[in-house]
Design a protein around this nucleic acid. Sequence first.
DNA 1: ATGAAAGCGCTAACAG
DNA 2: CTGTTAGCGCTTTCAT
Lengths: 346, 346
Amino acid sequence: MYNRRVSIADLAQQLNVATSTVSRALSDHSDVSEATKGRVRQLAEKLNYRPNHLASGLRKGRSGTLGVLVPHLTGHFFPEVLHTITTEATKAGWHVMICESNEDEHQERKNLDLLLNAQVEGVLVSLASSTRDFGHFEAVRQQVPLVFFDRVPEDPSFSAVVLDDYRGAYQMTAHLIEQGRTRIAYFTGPLHVSVFHHRLRGYREALLAHGLPFEAQLVHESDLSVQAGRQGMAQLLTLSQRPDAVLTAKDVAAVGARQVLEAQGLGVPDEVALASFSNARFTELAAPGLTSVDQQCAALGRAALRLLLEQVRAAGRPVAPCHLLLAPRLLLRESSQRPLHLRKVG
Amino acid sequence: MYNRRVSIADLAQQLNVATSTVSRALSDHSDVSEATKGRVRQLAEKLNYRPNHLASGLRKGRSGTLGVLVPHLTGHFFPEVLHTITTEATKAGWHVMICESNEDEHQERKNLDLLLNAQVEGVLVSLASSTRDFGHFEAVRQQVPLVFFDRVPEDPSFSAVVLDDYRGAYQMTAHLIEQGRTRIAYFTGPLHVSVFHHRLRGYREALLAHGLPFEAQLVHESDLSVQAGRQGMAQLLTLSQRPDAVLTAKDVAAVGARQVLEAQGLGVPDEVALASFSNARFTELAAPGLTSVDQQCAALGRAALRLLLEQVRAAGRPVAPCHLLLAPRLLLRESSQRPLHLRKVG
DNA sequence: ATGAAAGCGCTAACAG
DNA sequence: CTGTTAGCGCTTTCAT
């Protein structure tokens, strides 16, 4: 039914040369005559020969494969990052194995096992939100280079690439203040996740730096779902003095907030400004366009891969853990910009 | 720097048994004593032994890996399908290699090579939109089982799983007609892509079956981007008699259409009803919610994987090509439902 | 219940 | 320039 796969030995036999010659010819080794190379390549082509990656990997002690472990494939961010990683890695001659932890620490463990068994030569990880214990990563880094991105552990001995969330939140908060907002609410995700931790800090420090108070009642912690966004917004509207701006640590929560505002007849941005993190499709599709902190997926993916490959190429020589902070970029759209006639002049 | 990987030979040596015994113990072979199994497992655990997937694959002539090739990882549909596929495949003990063709026939070719070289035992494919020639798939199916999903070739000799796009379009068009719409415009994608071809047929036949004319001027072919949606809508509004409903073959195009309608002060659904295909996040997040034909990602992924594994397990025995049509499901939301006071009674 | 030995397909010394 | 040979880590007869 299926064709038997043709091996180097088959080619060698048909050409009356040694397997080693064929092997060398196929890898364009310098000390094979052009004539032989030609004959080998031609026959390989004709018989549709394909190198057995398992065999060469086994022999060379190199799988030529990298592992990537992400919490999930849905949404905007991870697919975008993965796209960059696979494209670049493939270009550099690597295979990539992608795993999903489904935000679950236990599946994260199992997937790491899977990757190590597949003999990956390096691993890129973005943490599951439920992960509290990092023992499984200790084991990994004793085997292969390991680089985290976006969702990274606090432990600075791990290499990591992240957006500068602190600065992103700081700058966005500052932007809202510059638009004349003085009561800025903030929707955060679980604070044990590093990104959310840093964003909250940025928010707070921007307030303080501009002489505004940090009020606990204006901060709402949740899973940042649409649902949570609605709840948070509804709660804020019960305050005696309602906020005039809302910053959410994730875009979908902003959608929920907006729904509530709309239902209450409160205009965006006139009465309440809205801003968030991430740059999913709908932040630009929504009307009015949602101001947000761009996640720079491509830059992040590229940086993480570059860092990993550096460590892989270091081939065992000790490498100091490296931390990359990507500068954030604000995408200012209508949802946060005070209409001209309402702006303070000067 | 990195720990040397421990092999079966290492375990065997430390336990003073043969490698074959260790191998058998680890795979829980029936004729190894429980005592030995215990000792082996304990040491394996202690030394953090991990089976070398390359070596066992080479020896067994089985890689335990499946390949999946999709046009891209962005959007809603493919990530969702991939999630199902990887989850289910992993559960069944398979590795999964994911590749992106970036909608490009040439990259599709290269990725198939990559997968075959990795010795995958089966391949799931959703076609790049630029693919016209299917020679490369001929080569693939001579090596391993091959199943297409969603974007499939016309050639019926290939196994394929698709949503019943014809019925989806038919039912959705019928739904719009039942809501009292009589001039229903349709935005289609490139017609050489099978899904778009079938959807157009469904649209047309639903019209005819309900005694409505099929008018070429109401059909707009494009790449279905937001941009294209805007253009198409703008063009429709120049007609002497504007449509009272628009069906788009992809959700983002509907977003573009809606933007134009809004700008022109035309209400959705009051003046123009809107419906589309796919069930991306924003179809439900948008206000009013966008009526659409659900893509049933999970069902599709599961069916495709099941079909592939059947063929893989058939292990060379000839398998007749199989075609699965998944029944569509309409998600009726506000954008298509005529407000009560305007509906025909009866 | 365990061991000895061969071999999956490939590459890399080493020899010529 | 080409061939011979050994071996990567594992599984699987075939013996015992």
